[in-house]
Lab assay of single mutants.
Amino acid sequence: YKELDVHLRRMESGFGFRILGGDEPGQPILIGAVIAMGSADRDGRLHPGDELVYVDGIPVAGKTHRYVIDLMHHAARNGQVNLTVRRK
């Protein structure tokens, strides 16, 4: 696995990616679609299928989808987010 730290600034449309997973206990949280011309797309480092490991330094492995969405909403209010993702 390769770990990447990604800092994104929120645009009008948000951070520019969707979150998948976390529906079953222990299921990984994954990056879903990366939205064209969004913040994540312009940054270029997030890829669909990347596993989300940390959101603003908070571990999200094994957490629920709702928990991660709530963290992302909090980050959106701050206008930026630091993510750590893991890729095979």
Results as ranks from 00 to 15, higher is better:
T84P: 02
P28H: 04
A75D: 03
D43M: 04
L30N: 08
Q27C: 09
Y54P: 01
D5W: 07
R77Y: 11
G44T: 05
A36T: 10
M11E: 15
V85H: 03
V85F: 02
R86D: 15
S39K: 04
T84A: 05
G38C: 03
R45E: 06
F17D: 01
L4D: 03
I19R: 00
L52Y: 01
R42P: 05
Y54C: 14
E51A: 05
L71N: 03
I29A: 05
R87C: 07
V34L: 14
L83I: 13
Y54M: 13
Y67S: 10
L30D: 00
A76D: 15
R10K: 14
S13L: 04
H47L: 13
V81N: 01
G38D: 06
E24I: 12
V55K: 02
D43W: 03
L83D: 02
P25Q: 08
G22H: 06
I69S: 15
L8D: 02
M37S: 15
E24Q: 13
M11Y: 14
P59Y: 15
A61N: 09
G21A: 09
G44D: 05
D41P: 04
G79L: 05
G26A: 06
Y1F: 13
R18D: 15
L8C: 05
L83T: 02
H7R: 11
L30Q: 12
R9T: 14
D23T: 11
M11S: 14
H47S: 12
D50R: 01
P48C: 10
A40W: 04
G14W: 01
L46G: 00
G21T: 08
G14S: 06
G79S: 06
D70R: 11
V34Q: 04
G32A: 11
V85C: 05
Y1L: 04
M37L: 11
A61G: 11
I58Y: 11
L71M: 10
I35H: 14
H73E: 15
D56W: 00
D50M: 04
V68E: 00
G49V: 00
R77I: 13
A76S: 11
L83S: 01
M72W: 01
E3F: 15
I19Q: 01
Q80Y: 15
M11H: 14
I29H: 14
P28W: 01
I69E: 15
I69T: 15
R66E: 14
G62E: 08
V6P: 03
P59W: 09
Y1W: 08
F15H: 00
H73Y: 09
D23L: 11
E51Q: 10
G32E: 11
K63P: 00
I29L: 11
V55R: 00
P48D: 07
P25D: 08
S13T: 12
R42Q: 12
I35P: 11
V81C: 05
I31C: 04
D56P: 01
G22Y: 05
D43P: 03
V53L: 13
G62Q: 07
K63R: 11
A61S: 13
E12T: 10
V6S: 00
K2Q: 09
V85D: 02
A40N: 05
P48R: 10
H47M: 14
H74L: 13
V60L: 09
G38M: 04
V6Y: 01
V81G: 02
R10A: 15
A76Q: 13
M37F: 10
G26F: 05
T64Y: 05
E3L: 11
G22K: 08
R42E: 07
R10F: 08
D5E: 13
I31Y: 00
Q27S: 13
Y54W: 10
G49N: 08
I58H: 14
A61L: 15
P59I: 09
G14M: 01
G44M: 05
R9Q: 14
L4M: 12
M37H: 15
R77M: 13
P25L: 08
R66T: 12
R77H: 14
F15W: 08
V6N: 03
H65A: 12
M37P: 08
P59C: 15
V55S: 00
R18I: 06
E24S: 13
P28F: 01
L71C: 07
G44W: 03
V34P: 08
G16N: 02
V85W: 01
V34G: 04
L46S: 01
V81E: 03
M11C: 07
M11L: 12
S39C: 08
M72I: 15
D5K: 13
G26S: 08
V68K: 03
P28T: 06
G22L: 03
T84L: 07
I19H: 00
Y1K: 05
P28M: 04
I58G: 02
G32Y: 04
G62I: 02
P28R: 09
R9N: 12
I69V: 13
T64L: 09
D41S: 09
D56R: 00
N78H: 11
A61I: 14
K63I: 03
A61F: 14
Y67A: 11
A75Y: 03
V60K: 00
G57K: 13
G21Y: 07
T84S: 09
G16W: 02
F15T: 00
Q80L: 08
V85T: 01
V81W: 01
H74G: 12
L52K: 02
H73M: 10
D41C: 08
G21E: 07
S39T: 06
A76L: 13
R9Y: 13
R66F: 07
P25F: 07
R9V: 14
E3R: 07
H7Y: 14
M37T: 11
P48H: 07
V68N: 03
G79Q: 08
G57A: 08
I35N: 13
S13W: 05
V6I: 14
E3C: 11
G49S: 04
A33T: 13
R10D: 06
V60P: 01
N82K: 12
Q80N: 12
V81I: 13
G79N: 10
G26Y: 06
D70T: 11
A33P: 13
T84W: 03
S13I: 03
V60G: 00
Q27E: 12
D43A: 04
V85A: 03
D41H: 11
D70L: 07
I31A: 00
G21C: 08
V6E: 04
L20I: 15
D70A: 11
I19F: 06
A75W: 04
A40R: 03
G16Y: 02
L83E: 00
V60N: 00
R42D: 06
H47Y: 09
G57N: 11
G26C: 06
R9F: 10
H7K: 13
V34N: 05
D5F: 13
M72Q: 01
A75N: 02
L46C: 02
T84M: 08
A75S: 07
Y54N: 14
G62T: 05
R77K: 14
R45M: 06
L46W: 01
G44L: 04
P59D: 12
G21V: 08
D43K: 04
G79F: 05
T84V: 12
F15L: 01
H74P: 00
D5P: 05
R77E: 15
N82Y: 09
L8M: 05
D41A: 13
L83Q: 00
A40L: 03
S39M: 05
Y67L: 09
G57R: 08
D56L: 01
V85R: 00
G21N: 05
N82W: 12
G26K: 06
R86Q: 04
L52A: 01
N78R: 14
N78S: 09
P48A: 12
H65I: 13
A76F: 10
A33I: 03
Q80V: 12
K2G: 03
G26P: 04
D23I: 10
F15D: 01
